[in-house]
Each structure stands twice: as C-alpha cells, then as structure tokens.
Design a protein around this nucleic acid. Structure first.
Lengths: 154, 154
DNA sequence: TCATTTGGTTCCATTTTGGAACCGATTGGG
DNA sequence: CCCAATCGGTTCCAAAATGGAACCAAATGA
C-alpha cells in the first residue's frame, strides 16, 4: 500500500495521520500553537526548505486546519481554524510523552500551566463522561456507526 | 535542516516526533494496541513493504517502545513496554480528532467505552491537578527546567 | 519428506526530501 | 523617486526514503 491511500482506510487514526502524519506537519502545528503565523517565521524557526513548507501550508489550508489571510498586499498569515485548534490535545499528548520518556534527564523544556486552577500540570487523557483518567488498561474499543471492516483495503 | 536532526531539538514534541513521526510508525502502534504482535500480521494488516516494517520494528525496539520476544524458534512477538503503553493517549487524541473532523458523515468507526463507568466516551484532555478539560484557550506554556532556547539549531 | 510459513534481505524503480538559486511584487530608507 | 531588502514563493537538481518484487534460510506441519 502506498502512503497516499492511507487516508482512505476506515480508521480515524489513519485519516488523522493522512493530514498530520508526515515528517514536518506536526512541527508546523507546534509552532503555530506557539504563535507563529507567517511563512518566513515558520521557515526560519523550523529550518525546513521553502518548497516543502509551501506545500505543507497549502495542504493544511485545503484540509481546513489553517486559514490564509493577507495582512498586507501579497503577505499572508496562517491561523488556526476551529479544526486546527482542536489539534491541541494531540500536541499536548505528544509533549507529555516526550517529557516523560525522552527528557534525557534534563527535565521538561516547557511546563503547562492550567489557567483555571493556576497549577503546572501534566496533560492527562480523561473520560468525557466521568472525568477519570483513561489508559490502555481501562478503555475498550467497540464497533462504531462508521465501521465496515477494521482494515479494509482497496 | 534534515529530518534526522529533528530529535536533537530541545522540544518534547520534536523528540516524540523523531520516534513516532514518520509515515508508518503510528499505524504500527495503532495495530499493536488492537492486539497485533507478529511481523506477518502487521504486514498483512497494514499492507506495507516488509523491509520498511522490519526497519520500523527494529527501531521501535531500540528506542524501547516494543520488546521482541521469541514465541517459537526464530518467531517473534512485538509487545509494548510501559513506554509503549504510554503512547495510548497520543493514539486516542488522534482518533478523537479524526472522529470529530474527518468522519465524512459516516460516524466514528470505533467508539471507546470506559471500563470504570461503562459509558461510550470521547477521550478528553484534562488537567492532572484539577481534572477539568484543557484546550488551547486555557493552558499557558511556561519555561521548564530543561529549557535552553525554544528553537536551538545545530 | 516436502511444501508452507515466518521473518526477514536484496535489488531496482519511483517518489519525496534537501539545498540552492532564482524571481516578481511589495516595502522601507534616503 | 530610486534602490536595496523582504516576503512568499517556484524551479532545478542531487540525495534519501519508499514501494514492489524476487529471493532466502530456518522452522513447522502434513
């Protein structure tokens, strides 16, 4: 199977990966969450080549993660849509995993402070119904309405 | 910058992506969470070429996400370590985003049931301190102990 | 015994990425 | 107004990664 067909799998994870699953896209999104908006800033911060950045931004706009708005003649800002904002938990879960398992003994580069309670926190996956933390041990996947086969191919 | 240097950034997200951020790795991990353990099963379920699968599994074992244990002479099973289990929230956050934003009107292929409360739920990112949901609007990133510069290069 | 399964490796063509040069439109400085 | 610099790209080419198929040795199973 080719990568370009991954998005056609009947799987939410595969479809998500078809949008954010290539080498640079999540780093672009990370920087966007840190406030970066403009082409040149993304490029200098990430050190990626311009044509790749151009492609990725174009694609994220097409998919609906970013809007592209001129802030001057021919100068654009890329800003999250609601769909883009909703990627924040994906970013947080990656940051939390890297902090815990790949910190090389130096501690977390960034800590997250929850505005409401004012405390530095670890982003934690919880049940929307009862609020308790969820892990691989207490979640059971079950067939949903959109299921046909778990791994349909072609 | 080349992709191989991304893992050296002083950023937990970048380091996480250096492990799980290539085309196939998260799909391998998805299937592992669904119970797949063996080379041939990963290969037939994912439809990826054998040498790529071989590379990815080798790497995930090196990094510490999987163990590789013989279940017969020369036959191996790949199983999550604690480090690997801890990737579950990343998978859940991707599944939740895909369900919400890329379902193509067909509904979620899989729903998650929380064992403790017994209800189908939406995996939600919450504050470890107060348990309230967190979003891009109520989290403030702050410098942590491992920070030197936010985007050190080279 | 002999075909089949498993878990790969090797080879090659195609695709993607990385690096650099180039470019037109816009802007800011003098 | 003129000129240099900036912005947001595009084009070209080399290098690296991926995709497809063939091949292979060890172990199994009939």
């Amino acid at each position: 199977m080719k990568w370009e067909n991954v998005g056609e799998m009947n799987c939410s994870v595969a479809r998500t990966l078809s949008v954010i699953g290539d080498r640079w896209t999540m780093l672009i999104i990370r920087n966007a969450f840190m406030g970066t908006r403009r082409f040149a800033d993304f490029q200098s911060q990430l050190g990626m080549t311009k044509h790749l950045l151009s492609d990725r931004l174009k694609r994220l706009v097409e998919v609906g993660v970013f809007t592209r708005e001129a802030y001057q003649q021919g100068r654009y800002e890329y800003r999250f849509t609601a769909m883009g904002d909703a990627l924040y938990p994906v970013l947080l879960s990656m940051a939390a995993w890297g902090d815990r398992w790949l910190d090389e003994g130096k501690g977390a580069p960034v800590v997250f402070v929850h505005k409401e309670c004012g405390k530095p926190m670890t982003p934690t996956m919880a049940c929307s119904e009862c609020g308790e933390p969820v892990t691989v041990h207490n979640v059971i996947p079950a067939p949903g309405p959109g299921l046909m086969t778990i791994n349909e191919k072609a």
